[in-house]
Amino acid sequence: MFQSLWQYRHFIVSSIRGDLKGRFVRSRLGGLWFILHPLAQALIFSIVLSEVLKARLPDTESPAAYPIYLLSGLAAWTLFSEILMRSMTVFIEQAPVMKKIAFPRLCLPIIVGGTALINHLLLLFAIFVIFVFLGHMPGRTLVLLPVGIVLIAAIGFGLGVILGVMNVFMRDVAQVMAIVLQLWYWLTPIVYPANVLPENYAFVLKLNPIAPVATLYQDALLFNRWPSAESLIMPAALGLLSMAFAIVFFRRASPELIDVL
Rank of each mutant, 00 (worst) to 15 (best):
Q3N: 14
S4W: 08
Y8A: 15
Y8I: 07
Y8G: 09
R9S: 11
H10C: 06
I12V: 14
S14N: 13
S15C: 13
G22T: 15
R26K: 13
S27P: 13
L29R: 14
G31L: 14
L32W: 15
F34G: 08
F34P: 04
H37R: 13
Q41P: 06
Q41M: 12
A42Y: 02
F45N: 06
S46I: 03
V48Q: 03
V48W: 07
L49Y: 13
V52Q: 05
V52Y: 11
A55V: 15
T60P: 09
Y69H: 11
L70A: 10
S72D: 03
S72W: 00
A75T: 15
S81E: 04
L84N: 05
T89Q: 15
E93R: 12
A95D: 09
P96S: 10
V97E: 11
A102F: 15
F103L: 14
R105C: 10
C107N: 13
L108A: 07
P109N: 09
I110V: 14
I111M: 11
V112R: 03
V112T: 15
L117G: 10
I118M: 11
N119Q: 15
L121F: 15
L123D: 01
V129C: 14
F131T: 07
F133P: 05
H136K: 06
L142E: 01
V143C: 07
V147P: 01
G156I: 05
F157I: 11
L159D: 02
L159K: 03
G160F: 01
D172M: 07
A174W: 00
Q175E: 00
Q175M: 01
Q175G: 00
V180D: 01
L187S: 09
P189Q: 04
P193E: 04
A194F: 08
A194T: 12
Y201T: 08
V204K: 06
N208V: 13
N208G: 12
A211T: 12
A211M: 12
R225S: 12
M234A: 08
L240C: 03
A244Y: 05
A244H: 03
F245S: 09
A246V: 13
I247M: 02
A253E: 05
P255N: 10
E256T: 10
D259Y: 11
V260Q: 14
